[in-house]
Design a protein around this nucleic acid. Sequence first.
DNA 1: CCAAAAGTGTTTGCTCTACACCCATGG
DNA 2: CCATGGGTGTAGAGCAAACACTTTTGG
Lengths: 231, 231
Amino acid sequence: MANGEREFLLNYHKEDYDRPSVAVDLVLFTLQDGKLTVFLQPREEHPYQGVLALPGTFVDTRESIDDAVRRCLLQKIRLDGIYFEQLYTFGAVDRDPRMRIISVAYYALVSADKLLEMDPTGDVLTHFYPVCEMDFPLAFDHRTIVECGVARIAGKAEYTDIAFELLPADFTLPQLQAVYEILLGKPLYKANFRKKIADKIVATDRMTAPDGHRPSQIYNKKPAPEVSGDQ
Amino acid sequence: MANGEREFLLNYHKEDYDRPSVAVDLVLFTLQDGKLTVFLQPREEHPYQGVLALPGTFVDTRESIDDAVRRCLLQKIRLDGIYFEQLYTFGAVDRDPRMRIISVAYYALVSADKLLEMDPTGDVLTHFYPVCEMDFPLAFDHRTIVECGVARIAGKAEYTDIAFELLPADFTLPQLQAVYEILLGKPLYKANFRKKIADKIVATDRMTAPDGHRPSQIYNKKPAPEVSGDQ
DNA sequence: CCAAAAGTGTTTGCTCTACACCCATGG
DNA sequence: CCATGGGTGTAGAGCAAACACTTTTGG
């Protein structure tokens, strides 16, 4: 009878009853003025017309979910080649009042300099809103999705290198520390922080331009360790 | 034009072109003979007829994804009220040769005693296979899904209490330690382990029946801490 | 008395925390 | 010479690893 159920559902599907649609929604983070910000756009259609929402798109039959995310990034934000990762799949029955839409949420990280490089007009930059000041309504369950993304990057900042995705290739240690402090939401001790990330970075021989105080050294992220050659 | 794209996709959907179907696939873990085992059933239909596969079902329009998981557990394994959690959503275009199916994978944990209680015939127990001995083919991308589940519970065992889900309410510390050792895949030091989990358990006044050596004390999981009353 | 497994105290070593201090630049 | 922020060494707290040891049962 477990099989009968499966049989039923297979037929149910083939005979083309109504069934869920699948979309991706994207939580694109960057840093502005020392704050974590997220990309939001006012919706142009009902429901939630004019209300800020995450960028998203339906998943086409001929593309993987990751490809739908890449397409969404490219078509809606003109971004390419940035870090993204699956977050969670949201499937409450009433999350969209029109019809049943299951949303596979992703988060993405981009550095402010990459944003400017990709969009020299600076128009895209105006669509970012600080996550700690979102005292306005969001469409659908998008507030929940953003909160889920914030929680994820806070957690992953502790044991992965995602913080580097929010900085240019050249960065200083005070900058890197600021990123960690924003993601973790707490201040860090300078000396301890430097010891902890020492093995993830390489110093260049360049310094920042003097600015009323001691210039800081410029670092790069250490390349991912090669698998040991001999075995 | 981002809007035109959205418009197109909305119409694309409404006019009922082919679009992805959504299923849940379930990685149900338990412990047998000191090994982590997973529930698999031979498929009764093509494709992969006769090949072992995870239990799964299509997501109905009127149920949430979590509800689809509950229904799958109940209909296919006759299980109810056990721990489960979303794992990852798999959406490669060719993961199912028949048609495009996006699978929201979940993992679930059940203790061997609960399995027997729910299914006194013991039939369900025969469908579990040790994850470390899966030297046989699996249908679709189900091997990847199982591996994803194994990695997840190994990680979560370190900072959550999921290990308790694999034991009855009454357990001994050697039993609990064995669960952690299986999930983490490494031996633990008895004295250190006991100190570490001391604040998560409460001792009962009961002991196991003597068995050729010193009996062990029976413990229960400490109830989740109440939110402190005064504030 | 011995084997086997349960259960406990103590030492050691490491990591993270916190503080103290020095360095380079502009004014 | 001071203010500002960059950069570094070192002592102490806390946690975890490792070891040594005692206890209880059956044979």
